[in-house]
Every structure is written in structure tokens, then in C-alpha cells.
Amino acid sequence: MDSILSLLPKIYNPVDYDAFSVIQTIFWFIAAAISFYFSFKIARLWTSISVGFFLIFWSQAYMLNPYAHSYNKMAAIHYVIGAIAILVISHGFQEYYIFTRTLEITGRKYLVYLTTIGVIAVASVLITINPKPTLQVLRNYKIMENSIWFFLAMLNIFMVWKIFNELRDSFVAKGVLCFAIVFFFIVLWKGSELYLQIYQWDKDWMDIIDFSGEATDAAKYATRINVAQIINRYSALMSGISVAGAFSYLFKLLR
């Protein structure tokens, strides 16, 4: 057994596991499983949305693997996958809204899968041919991901509301409205993390200044940092639970 383990890549920076992250990832897994199953069984327009939620799980789960902090390029790729996830989800909701206004359904499921794989491949190539990301660069990737998530999630709440208004008297309307709750938690989750990052009160920044010796004002704002961290932890958990719940409810409605 030891001889096999010695063949595996070296873990440079072990991952700290906390129960919260594990539980959260389990819920994302349930959401991903349902949404992926959903994308096979249901109308084409749900494919983008389902694939997007599956990618969230993928990027979350990656951060739990023992090598997550050891290979910076792979970590960067997964931050980009996280950003692609919300882009694909938003695209899906925009298509849904267009459907409610034009009643047109265009495109093919396989095109959604292929395009998503293609975009991820291009992003991976770009990251691979560039220098190895430092901790600062990785943090920048994270800020980029959180910014995209935060603003698109807010936009999606508006989009879901508009879709709901068009479908208000249809059977599926409440199921669609559930996604407004999902995006509400996502806004809190990503927004609180972005807040901490912008003011350099996030854990990654603290790790960086441990080496650089730079000063921080975190102690001065301990309460608000604490509140933001609590919001971040619970809203992340609630995002996973609400996605799993929304897809389960939608599945029940459309079955």
C-alpha cells in the first residue's frame, strides 16, 4: 500500500477539512446529481441551467481533494470553472425568459455540453500556458469568480422574477420561483466572500501576509468580519440545500 501511495503526486499544502465544507459539498452533490439527471430527461432549455449547477458542485468538490492547494494551475482552472458555471446558468435563465416571450426553443442539448466543455478547455489551455499562479494570483482568480457570481446572481433573481411573472398561472411557476431563493443565498454567499476579499479580510489574504509581514486592520473590524464570515458559511450551506430542494421540487412538478 505504501509503495502505491509513494507513486501518487506529492501533497505540498494539505487541505484543512471542516465539517461545514463537507456537508455543503454533499448538498451540492445532491443538487448536481438531480440537475444532471434533469438535463437528460427534460426540455432543452433546462440543460444550460442543469449543467451550470453541476459545474458548481465540480468546482466545490475539487477544493476538498487533498491536492487542491498543491497545484496552483489546477486550482486556478477550477476557479474559472466556477465562473463558467454561473455564466452557463445565467444563459439558461435568459433563454428561458426568451422562451416565455417568443415561445421559441432553439439549439440542441449536445451543443450545450460541447460548448461548455470547449470553453473550459480553452480556459484551461490559457491558464496552462501562463506562469504558475502565485497565491496572490490565485486570490485574484477567486475575486474574479466571486464578482461574476455576485452580479450575475443578482441579475438572475430579476430574471427569475420576470420568468415567474410570465408563467405565473402555469403549473411550473412556483418551481421556477424557487430559484430566486437559490440566487438570494448565492448573493449572500458570494457577496460576503467578495466583501471580505475587497477589504483584504479573507483567509487567503491573511495567509499571504503571514509570509510578507504586511499589516492588517482586521482586528479593528472583528465584528463585521465575523458577521460576514457567518453569513458566508451559512449562506453557502443554504445555497447547496436550496439548489437541491429547488431541483427536487421542480422534478416533482414536472415528473
Binding site: I42, A43, L45, W46, Y96, F99, L103, I105, L167, S170, F171, V172, L253, L254, R255
Partner: peptide, 12 residues
């Protein structure tokens, strides 16, 4: 049926 899949379930 194609359009309806986005509005209601298969039974309906």
C-alpha cells in the same frame, strides 16, 4: 408537447 414541457408535467 415540446413547448409545454417548460410549463407543466408530462401527465398534464
Amino acid at each position: 408537447e415540446n413547448g409545454s414541457k417548460l410549463l407543466t408535467n408530462l401527465a398534464k
